[in-house]
């Protein structure tokens, strides 16, 4: 929810909001598939703030799905919380993308890329 607020704060407009916390946190591949089915999506922000939900599990799902679907849009990561070291290393190694340290920076970059 906060992610959407910050997107709007930086002048962007959320195309989709999809939360994969709670029981659904192992299903990030299906979540990505769903979000990318919207042709209005021009950039993607993946913001993990994992408490119970393990960010390394969520990142694994996203990375797998990303390599499978090969979307043409840019993606920006901000990963914090349980399992963040493993998750960040995974995104770096398998997608060659450096996750942002600050959520605000990741969102700002995603908004800029969509404009």
């Amino acid at each position: 929810m906060t992610t959407m607020d910050v997107i709007r704060h930086f002048g962007g407009r959320p195309a989709n909001f999809l939360e994969i916390g709670g029981e659904a946190y192992t299903k990030s591949a299906a979540a990505l598939d769903l979000v990318l089915s919207n042709p209005g999506v021009r950039s993607l922000i993946i913001n993990f703030c994992g408490a119970f939900a393990r960010t390394d599990v969520m990142a694994e799902g996203v990375v797998k799905a990303w390599q499978e679907l090969k979307p043409a849009i840019p993606v920006f990561f901000s990963i914090h919380g349980t399992g963040e070291d493993e998750a960040i290393a995974l995104v770096r190694a398998r997608l060659g993308i450096e996750p942002y340290d600050l959520m605000e920076d990741a969102i700002q970059a995603a908004v800029r890329a969509a404009q």
């Binding site: 929810m1 906060t2 916390g21 994992g50 914090h80 959520m103």
Partner: peptide, 14 residues
Amino acid sequence: SGSLGTLVCLELTQ
């Protein structure tokens, strides 16, 4: 909320 609580604590630490 646990997630928003995590975010707030993250921002305080940062």
